[in-house]
């Protein structure tokens, strides 16, 4: 068995992959644009962080680890900005969010009408 830090980096990378996949599933499964932003947020935050942290642990203390940290910072800085810009653009152009617990039922009503 490898040393504990290596094992920790495996755990991080694999759990990061799981969160990336959950984000992908959410992107397909959620009912409207605004809720899908939340799903994309999972990939952008925890999924990316865990994978990059795992790679940093694997890398140890080196120049490449610093580059990974920079990558982490860029994703941290640009991710929310892009999400916000998209949400604002959609909102200002009149795309109304579905609201309330009965939103799936509203779809069914729409189908009947």
């Amino acid at each position: 068995m490898a040393n504990p830090i290596e094992v920790l980096s495996w755990v991080f990378i694999l759990s990061g992959s799981i969160f990336v996949i959950i984000g992908g599933i959410g992107l397909l499964r959620l009912p409207d644009f605004y809720t899908r932003i939340h799903a994309a947020g999972i990939t952008d935050t925890l999924g990316a962080w865990l994978i990059l942290l795992g790679l940093m642990l694997h890398e140890g203390f080196s120049l490449n680890a610093a580059k990974l940290a920079m990558l982490l910072f860029f994703l941290l800085a640009t991710g929310p900005l892009a999400s916000h810009a998209l949400a604002k653009a959609a909102f200002l152009r009149g795309l109304d969010p579905l609201q309330g617990r009965g939103l799936v039922d509203r779809h069914e009503v729409d189908d009947n009408a």
């Binding site: 932003i37 947020g41 935050t45 941290l76 929310p80 999400s83 916000h84 949400a87």
Partner: peptide
Amino acid sequence: ANSITLTPGTVSIR
């Protein structure tokens, strides 16, 4: 606003 967007589950719109 950025902190709100950063946490999945909430997005600041404007």
